[in-house]
Design a protein around this nucleic acid. Structure first.
Length: 461
RNA sequence: GUGAAUGUAGUUCAGUUGGUUAGAACGCCAGAUUGUGAUUCUGGAGGUCGCGGGUUCGAGCCCCGUCUUUCACCCCA
């Protein structure tokens, strides 16, 4: 028999992990809702034509494709199969694929429902996505994204609010040491322009994005290999290595971009975002203007964001930006601008686990376990457990009549904080024995006394 | 997709130049304790050494393939 296992890069989440994951999801969801975003869900699978061509050639290879049902080979073009032209052959035998991110399905939804939607449309979406990548630490083939996007406005208020939401989210999660990096695609394009590298933009962006990872020398090597000369590299690193406050960076770039319209646009946008943040009354802590931040996804056109939790061996936990023409790929007439942020909850989980900063009480176990010593106690317990539930206290009764030791062990293992013991004495006096597992202390109390005390205890948290 | 490492009990790991019956700790189960968990004591169960082939008188150890996990590149949450 085949050994049971999971597909590469996928995981089960047991109760303990789920408690922590839900803590992260709930925290982020609350922030999204507080900023006026509304929920959306889209199907796990999309038509392959919706997905292909949106993420570049690399992205197309990372799409999971779903084999057509039935005798799919009959319909396929034999020539494509036999000549080994797998790209064409794939189109013949697979018409559906698993979603690769939440942004493209969102754009599809917006275009399909444009007449129903009130713009600007603010939606959040928390669902798994799939990538046929090779798994590594912090990198899975199935993982969750928590996205919030606004479509249908160019206002930089959205960008500023993204920064506010990131701060709120990490505050709710209890993550204190993190950096929000911000840059603008037009700043990068402006750089390319003054370096005379407009044709070579992408290799420039890819190389400088690695600056903090591989260092200045390696980036220079890579750029020289791609045909950049030493003069332009000198200019480039003069800009990249500039140290100073945000205001000083802006001033420097304004001079640098004296002859670059694109560069000026980028600097103006960023200045406005920063001044909006001031108007919101938000401090600039955690926010870094990083001229070297590029980000891969080619559809970004305006501000770009990336969030890293410091001192953990995990890549970015969140990223986003503005894309001016995402909906245009579905309909050329449709040119709504969008801007959004995506939190990777699997990576946030890994980082928080590494830092050991999950709150202790994330477990969703019962508050009370009813234990019983005999059949009368068990019956009395059934009434009692239901009464606790009516008072809003999560409780359960041990379902089998077994030794009290066994029932206590169960409470201990499930980390249920309180145990009620019901035996002949309790049934007769109508006073229940309440045991606090943490200390081992126990008292005889009435149902009312216990229920009130537990409710107080729960409200304290 | 390219290049490399890894896999032994539920878990973390030992296991000598290839040599009889593969070990430890923790965990698990039972009892000490028929109205009490976590602590203590006693006993017990648990392994096709990832899987498949090969070399050898003999393989956990060597060789090939395959899968898993991990690392670098690519890319990314």
């Amino acid at each position: 028999m085949e050994k049971i296992s999971l597909p590469k890069g996928t995981r089960d989440f047991g109760p303990e992990q789920m408690a922590k994951r839900q803590f992260i999801i709930d925290s982020i969801k609350k922030v999204f809702q507080r900023y006026g975003f509304q929920p959306l869900e889209t199907p796990a699978m999309e038509n392959l034509s919706t997905l292909t061509g949106k993420y570049g050639d690399e992205g197309d290879q990372l799409l999971f494709k779903i084999l057509n049902s039935g005798d799919f080979l009959k319909e396929a073009n034999k020539q494509n199969l036999e000549t080994g032209n797998w790209k064409l052959a794939t189109g013949d035998i697979a018409e559906k694929g698993l979603r690769y991110d939440l942004t493209v399905p969102f754009a599809r939804y917006v275009v399909m429902n444009r007449h129903e939607i009130a713009f600007p449309f603010k939606r959040y979406q928390i669902q798994p996505v799939w990538r046929a990548d090779r798994p590594q630490k912090g990198r899975y083939r199935e993982f969750y994204q928590c996205d919030a996007d606004v479509v249908g406005t160019d206002s930089l208020v959205c960008e500023a609010e993204i920064i506010l939401m990131i701060k709120d989210a990490f505050k709710a999660l209890g993550v204190g040491d993190y950096s929000i990096k911000i840059n603008h695609r037009a700043v990068l394009s402006g750089l390319a322009e003054i370096l005379g590298a407009r044709e070579n933009e992408n290799s420039l962006f890819v190389a400088i994005d690695k600056l903090d990872k591989i260092g200045e020398e390696k980036v220079k090597e890579e750029l020289i290999a791609r045909g950049f000369n030493t003069d332009s590299l000198a200019t480039l690193f003069e800009v990249l290595n500039f140290k100073g406050s945000v205001a000083q960076k802006m001033e420097m770039l304004t001079k640098t971009f004296a002859n670059s319209e694109k560069g000026k646009k980028g600097v103006n946008d960023l200045s406005e975002v920063f001044s909006l943040l001031e108007n919101y009354g938000s401090a600039f802590d955690h926010v870094e203007f990083d001229i070297a931040l590029a980000r891969g996804l080619s559809y970004y056109t305006g501000c770009i964001f990336e969030v890293k939790i410091n001192n953990v061996g995990i890549g970015s936990v969140s990223g986003g930006g503005r894309y001016d023409n995402l909906t245009a790929v579905f309909d050329a007439k449709e040119k709504s601008s969008g801007v959004g942020i995506s939190f990777g909850i699997d990576r946030i989980y890994d980082a928080m686990e590494e830092l050991k900063i999950f709150p202790k009480e994330t477990s969703a176990a019962s508050t009370i376990l009813i234990t019983h010593l005999d059949n009368d106690g068990f019956k009395y317990g059934l009434k009692t457990v239901q009464a606790f539930r009516e008072r809003g206290i999560a409780s359960e009764i041990y379902p089998d009549q077994v030794k009290i030791k066994k029932q206590m062990e169960y409470a201990d293992r499930k980390k249920i904080p309180f145990v009620v013991v019901i035996g002949p004495e309790e049934v007769q006096t109508k006073n229940l024995t309440l045991k606090k597992m943490e200390t081992g202390n126990q008292l005889k109390l009435s149902f009312e006394e216990i229920a009130t005390a537990i409710q107080l205890h729960n409200n304290k948290d």
